[in-house]
Nucleic acid binder design. Structure first.
Ligand SMILES: NC(=O)c1ccc[n+]([C@@H]2O[C@H](COP(=O)([O-])OP(=O)(O)OC[C@H]3O[C@@H](n4cnc5c(N)ncnc54)[C@H](O)[C@@H]3O)[C@@H](O)[C@H]2O)c1
Ligand SMILES: NC(=O)c1ccc[n+]([C@@H]2O[C@H](COP(=O)([O-])OP(=O)(O)OC[C@H]3O[C@@H](n4cnc5c(N)ncnc54)[C@H](O)[C@@H]3O)[C@@H](O)[C@H]2O)c1
Lengths: 248, 248
DNA sequence: CGCGATTTGTGCACGCCTTCACAAGCGCCT
DNA sequence: AGGCGCTTGTGAAGGCGTGCACAAATCGCG
C-alpha cells in the first residue's frame, strides 16, 4: 500500500548538495513542454524570448509560465525576456537531463516494436539499452540494433547497465509481474502502457499511458457536445464546411 | 478550456434530453479507470463491490471514488455497495460509450501501425474506420484489414463514415496541418501523439500523449531521489557538476 | 543622464479538488 | 421486531493551482 507522506514544510536544513526546492507537481509536468518549445525557438535563431512568446509556443498562460520558471530561480531579465540557451540548460538540469538515463523496454509486441524504433528517446537524453520479452521465439531477434533478451536476464542486465527507467509494453495480465521484476532489479521509475494499476513500493514512481482512457474522455466530450447541440438547435446540419478561425 | 460556469444550481430548465450535470473534469478523467476496474471485477463473478474495493482496484482513495460516483447519481446501496452491472451501464452511458464512435488514424508509420493493430479500441466501444497517410507509397496498403487512403480523401470519408475522433500519429511538423484537415472535415475530438501544441477552434477537444514528457517527468524524480540519497549517506562523489546555489 | 517602454517576478484572491469524518440508510442476525 | 454492523453519500476544511494585477528592474534612446 503506497503510503503518502503529506509533508509540506520543506525542512531539510541547508543542503550542500542541491537538494531540490520542491517544485509543484503541476510545474514539473509543464517543464518538458517549455523545453520543447525552447528547442524549437532556438532552432529559429532566437536568442531571447518573452514569457508571452514562450507561453504561446507552449500553449499555456503567460502568468503561469512565469510563476513556473520563478520556482527554479530567476533566469530572466526584466524588460528583455529569457535567454533561450540559459533557460534550456537550467530546465534540463532540473529535470536531470544533463545525465543520460538508461531505459529498458519490456514486451516487444505491436507497441514495443514501435517504441524500440522511436528516435524521440535519444534526442531527449534517453537511451534504450535493453529489450526484454518472455516469448522464447522473440529472444535473440535484433530490433533496431538491439537484441531481445529473455525477461529472466533483466535482473542481471539492469544492474550492469544501471537501468533507471523501465517501460512496460506487455499485456495487462503480465504487467504486475514485470513491474515486480523491475523493482527487484532496482529500477525506480516505470512507464506503464498496460491498462492496469501497478502496485509498487513508495520509492518507485509509476506513470501510466492509457489510450483507451484518453479516447473515453474524448468520447464523453463528444457525448456532452451532442446533447448540448440537441437542445437549442434541433438538428444542426453540421456538414462542417467552415470553422471560425481561432488561431492567432 | 471552455468557460466554466461555477454554478451549483445548474440552471437548465428540465431538459428532456439528458443534458449533463457538469461533472468535474477530474472526475471524468477517472471514470474510465473505474470502468476498467468494474469490468475486471465483473469477470471474476462479483455482483456488487464496495467503494473500498473498487477504489483499491482503480488505485484511488475510496472517498474520492464515492464523491465521483455521487456526481452521477445514487447508484449504490448503503450497507451493500454498488451493483457492478448497473454501475458499468451508468458509467458507459455518461461517457457516451453506448454508441460506437468512429475513429480515424492519420499517419501510418512506426506508431500508426501499432495503433492500427491495437485491439484495445474495439473492445471499448471504438472502431477504427479509416486510415490516412500522405505518403503515396503507403496508400493502398492494407493494414489489419483496412486500406490506407490518401489524406486528401479525409474530408469526404470523414463525412461518409461520421468520424468523430481523429488520431494523429504523424511527425510533429505535419501535425498542425493534419489537425486543420480534421477540423475542416468536422471532426471535433483529436488525440495527438505528435510532440507539439495544436491550435484548434474552441469547440474541438484535443488530448495529447507525449512519451518524451512522461519520461522527462520520471527523470526529474530520479534526479530528485538521487539528490536526496546523496544527502544523508556519506560521500557525495560530486562527479557531476552539482553546484547551483539556490536561494538568496 | 534621465525617462519611458517593456517585461519579469510575485502578492493575493478565488475556485477546484482532495480528504476527513460522520449521519443516514440498508440488510442481516438474533 | 429490534439492534447492530456495514457502507454510502455529503458537509466542511484545507491544500493546491491558476490567473490577475502591479511593483520592481532593465534596456534603449534622446
Ligand atoms: N498496440 C498498441 O497500439 C497499444 C496502444 C496502447 C496500449 N497498448 C497496450 O500495450 C500493451 C502491449 O500491446 P501490444 O499490442 O504490443 O501487445 P502484444 O500482444 O502485441 O505484445 C505483448 C508482448 O509482451 C510479451 N510478453 C507477454 N508476457 C510477458 C512477460 N511476462 N514478460 C515479458 N514480456 C511479455 C509478449 O511476448 C509480446 O511480445 C498492452 O497492454 C496493450 O493494452 C497497446
Ligand atoms: N514511434 C513511437 O514509438 C512514438 C512514440 C511516441 C510518439 N511518437 C510520435 O508519433 C509520431 C509518429 O511517429 P512514428 O515513429 O510513427 O513516425 P514515422 O515517421 O514512422 O511515421 C510518420 C507517418 O506519417 C506520415 N505523414 C507525414 N506527413 C503526413 C501528412 N501531412 N499527412 C498524413 N500523413 C503524414 C508519414 O508518411 C509516415 O507514414 C511522431 O510525431 C512521433 O514523435 C512516436
Amino acid at each position: 500500500m503506497s503510503q503518502q507522506r503529506h509533508g509540506s514544510t520543506p525542512g531539510h536544513g541547508a543542503g550542500a548538495v542541491p537538494a531540490f526546492p520542491d517544485l509543484p507537481e503541476a510545474t514539473i509536468a509543464r517543464l518538458p513542454e517549455y523545453l520543447r518549445a525552447l528547442h524549437n525557438l532556438g532552432e529559429t535563431g532566437a536568442d531571447t524570448v518573452s514569457s508571452e512568446g514562450l507561453a504561446a509556443a507552449a500553449g499555456v498562460n503567460s502568468a503561469k509560465l512565469r510563476k513556473d520558471l520563478s520556482h527554479l530561480g530567476s533566469y530572466g531579465t526584466r524588460g528583455v525576456g529569457y535567454d533561450v540557451t540559459l533557460l534550456i540548460e537550467q530546465i534540463e538540469y532540473v529535470l536531470g537531463l544533463d545525465q543520460r538515463r538508461a531505459v529498458c523496454l519490456v514486451g516487444l509486441g505491436n507497441l514495443g516494436h514501435a517504441l524500440a524504433g522511436y528516435d524521440g528517446f535519444a534526442s531527449r537524453g534517453f537511451k534504450i539499452v535493453a529489450l526484454f520479452d518472455a516469448d522464447e521465439s522473440k529472444v535473440g531477434e535484433i530490433i533496431h540494433g538491439l537484441p531481445v533478451r529473455h525477461i529472466s536476464d533483466l535482473g542481471r542486465v539492469a544492474v550492469e547497465e544501471k537501468i533507471a527507467i523501465g517501460v512496460i509494453a506487455t499485456p495487462a495480465g503480465a504487467a504486475q509481474a514485470v513491474a515486480d521484476v523491475l523493482v527487484d532489479a532496482g529500477v525506480t521509475s516505470i512507464l506503464n502502457f498496460a491498462p492496469c494499476v501497478l502496485s509498487v513500493p513508495s520509492n518507485v514512481d509509476v506513470r501510466k499511458v492509457d489510450l483507451a482512457i484518453e479516447l473515453q474522455i474524448l468520447s464523453f466530450h463528444e457525448h456532452r457536445k451532442a446533447s448540448l447541440t440537441a437542445l437549442p438547435g434541433g438538428r444542426s446540419a453540421t456538414t462542417a464546411g467552415d470553422q471560425e478561425a481561432v488561431g492567432s
